[in-house]
Amino acid sequence: MVSVVPSLWGYAIAGYVMTAGAIGLYVVALHARARRARDRAAAIAGRRRTSTPP
């Protein structure tokens, strides 16, 4: 994709794609981690409530 034409668009596009990719991946990963953590907290809490006390 990086082409050394005088307009040098290739470098600009590569940079913007890289930036968008990095930020996008991080946002998606953050939300996935948050969802997993919430599910885990809920699962632990649920297990504790349903099990009988010793």
């Binding site: 946002v27 953050l30 948050a34 953590a37 907290a41 504790r48 006390p53």
Partner: peptide
């Protein structure tokens, strides 16, 4: 902001697991 929420959720999961009394 999103990362803070993640931190709070992780802490809550740990707190639930360590909670000494059931329910």
């Amino acid at each position: 902001t999103v990362r803070l929420r993640l931190g709070r959720l992780e802490d809550r999961a740990v707190a639930e697991a360590l909670s000494p009394r059931l329910g």
